[in-house]
């Protein structure tokens, strides 16, 4: 049992490493995602005065807006690229479960979005002259949970939509409503963390995110059993 679990975990890592290797070699998504993120910050920085009292109200929504759409860009191709290049059968013939394939893609997506966050969070804090008042550990947890949620939903939706001819429309249409129960609490938490250092204020939103993550994880594990089979 433990040996099998270790094999699955190793397989998830190998799948994610392979995707990252291909991504950094060809720069399919990361270049467009980073360009979109940086241009968005630049454009918004012209319209929002960094010294105005409203900048700390706007920045959380702006940050999560950029992260969400970076995810939509990135995830629209995770499974569909495999299908277009006809390598989807490579995933089907490996001695792994469909859930392992999903988790491999989720880790890959998580890594891509994390890179975007590492670049855009410090830049946007400088551009909007802001800082987090809460302990940075809470900031890390909020962005970690939000990114996990986004990666999980993105990978699942990409898998579900890969058979669709109009997947560029289908992916955001399914993904955005599913991600709202995670993104909205994340925006509220980020706002609270910029405005106050009261950690106890953020507990209810944390609960909502955790509950949604558990529900989404369970649903994706059950659903994905049927997604990868032709």
């Amino acid at each position: 049992m433990i040996r099998e679990l270790l094999f699955e975990l190793r397989s998830i890592a190998y799948l994610a490493i392979r995707d990252l290797k291909i991504e950094f070699r060809k720069k399919h998504e990361i270049f467009s995602i980073l360009t979109f993120s940086l241009v968005s910050i630049l454009i918004f920085s012209f319209s929002i005065d960094p010294f105005s009292k409203y900048s700390n109200e706007v920045l959380p929504a702006l940050l999560w807006f950029i992260i969400l759409f970076s995810g939509v860009f990135g995830f629209s191709t995770t499974f569909t690229r495999e299908r277009d290049q006809e390598t989807i059968n490579a995933l089907r013939i490996l001695p792994i479960s469909p859930q392992t394939a999903l988790m491999g893609k989720t880790i890959y997506g998580f890594s891509l979005i994390s890179i975007v966050e590492i670049v855009i969070i410090p830049i946007s804090l400088v551009f909007f002259n802001l800082s987090f008042k809460t302990n940075l550990f809470f900031v890390f947890i909020v962005f970690l949970l939000g990114t996990i949620g986004l990666s999980l939903i993105g990978s699942m939706v990409s898998g579900l939509a890969m058979y669709s001819e109009s997947r560029t429309i289908v992916i955001p249409m399914i993904m955005v409503p599913l991600i709202l129960p995670i993104i909205i609490p994340c925006i509220l938490l980020t706002r609270t963390m910029i405005l106050t250092n009261m950690a106890n204020l953020i507990i209810p939103e944390f609960k909502i995110i955790l509950f949604t993550l558990v529900a989404l994880f369970s649903a994706s594990i059950i659903l994905f059993e049927y997604v990868l089979v032709d």
Binding site: K21, I22, K26, E86, T87, A90, I93, L94, P95
Partner: peptide, 22 residues
């Protein structure tokens, strides 16, 4: 038993099951 079967099975498909970027 897909996982068990795939351990003992080699499948040469019509399509190329290799990654072009590797």
């Amino acid at each position: 038993n897909q996982k068990k079967i795939h351990q003992h099975l080699g499948y040469l498909s019509h399509e190329l099951l290799l990654y072009r970027e590797l």
